[in-house]
Design a protein around this nucleic acid. Structure first.
Lengths: 266, 266
DNA sequence: GCTAATTTGTACGTATGTATC
DNA sequence: TGATACATACGTACAAATTAG
């Protein structure tokens, strides 16, 4: 029988199932689900606060009267659904999940979106490379394959938490000194203005969801089993000519999308 | 050393790592990744065809010179990403993944979408309940909380494969005999026409991704660790009055979305 | 900068439960 | 009903990352 003294709070301690008590070496079915549910409940009830460190796996195993593997299974499920963040060598922590609602419409602007939600829109420029356009990129930008384009990689943060990571392509001949101007200012819309572009529209948007690749999960600081939303978009000049082509990986744990056909306020 | 005779094809058989050969009881790091990659490659190369049954776990364990748990880990990852479908008591099978591109625009029509993609749009009506509108539903439909609404549950199939499962709510007073008419015809647009509604628009669309709940995974016949896309939408009359409120769970393995602001052809 | 302790990650074995055929 | 095959569970050992000293 596991310890369950008040000193062991704040973790609740459901008894091992009746079967387990009856016969110590008997098979228990779905024990990991029970443990998962117990911990999830503690998080939901606020008994375990965001950022709190959970006991170590061996400690939890003893407390719940289960093997370490069973604990790990429960933890993995919780991490997969975004409740926990498991970090090798450090421990397991309760995750906070602020959900942003990002608006995609005729005039989609990252900064305006973030500000409207009351969060600070920081970004981390990870590099601008001058490369030859692949067939796909060239086609979307209306260029010849192999034409020079700038590929800008950027991590976007809301209140310091990573929400998306992506690449955006621009015609290198149209925007000759894009790298310098982009590094000087944090907003893409502001960069466009220096080129005399006062307005631009969202041309096409394609999106799908999948499980995160290992590198994406790392960049977004989320669990590898948490999904991401892939958004591939083309922005255009008001006349419909392609302006940029982008592929952005969004953390499914932190962003919801709202799609509008109408124009919203400034 | 594991068997790797031609008779054992079509599965490729990478050698156990050097370390493993050198010292049989030595720890091997990331063996499951190697095995996962090997099987994925076989699938990608077409060596393992869609629908094919893989050898049993013990057989694979022996073949790859690994423990059964290690095989299971590799299989779980492959299933999570949609390559395999694991069925208790039957075996493990190679999954086929036809990706539909579903268009969301001012006039979103499921049937038109499917037909445009060249797939047969079947559906399975799972029930129509007359219930009291919750606050959320009532608000979106412009009704008073507790007003009677019809909740229509439907599973949508493309070429016989489940792609979405959802509920759509209608004002029960506006559509008094909806259940009968809905059961008589497969297309919602056709039902609307019997009520004299010749046109309707997509009002708002909200979407996010998350891991599938167990029941959703079962309904969509996909792996529990494969994500789903949740689409919450309001359709309206041309004048903007709410017509329906729906929440649809889409299989992320089988559907991509394309968002347009323009009108497409009939 | 290095070492030791802590904590999670991977791997093996083995036994039993449960669904399918 | 029995055989097959996946699901869950326990135990154990060692690797790798982090942190504390």
């Amino acid at each position: 029988m596991p310890d369950c003294h008040p000193r062991d709070m704040p973790l609740s301690c459901p008894e091992p199932s009746q079967k387990f008590i009856r016969m110590n070496r008997e098979m228990i079915r779905d024990r990991w689900r029970e443990i998962r549910a117990a911990i999830e409940q503690d998080i939901m009830d606020g008994v375990l606060e965001p950022g709190a460190k959970l006991p170590t796996e061996p400690a939890l195993a003893e407390r719940y009267g289960a093997g370490r593997h069973t604990i790990r299974r429960a933890m993995a499920e919780l991490a997969k659904d975004g409740y926990l963040s498991v970090e090798q060598g450090r421990g397991t922590f309760v995750q906070q999940r602020p959900m942003l609602e990002y608006t995609i419409g005729p005039r989609t602007r990252l900064r305006r979106n973030m500000n409207a939600l009351g969060v600070s829109a920081a970004g981390e420029l990870q590099g601008i490379d001058r490369v030859e356009a692949s067939g796909r990129v060239a086609g979307q930008l209306g260029l010849a394959p192999g034409a020079p384009v700038f590929a800008t990689r950027r991590l976007s943060l809301a209140d310091g938490v990573p929400v998306s990571s992506g690449v955006i392509y621009h015609d290198a001949l149209r925007f000759p000194d894009l790298p310098e101007r982009r590094r000087a200012m944090d907003s893409l819309t502001a960069v466009y203005e220096t080129y005399g572009i006062t307005d631009y529209l969202r041309g096409s948007t394609r999106m799908h969801a999948r499980n995160a690749r290992a590198a994406e999960a790392r960049a977004l600081r989320q669990h590898p089993d948490m999904p991401v939303i892939v958004v591939v978009a083309v922005d255009t000049y008001p006349d419909g000519t392609p302006l940029s082509f982008s592929k952005v990986i969004w953390s499914a744990a932190r962003v919801k999308f709202r799609i509008t056909t109408e124009e919203e306020g400034p």
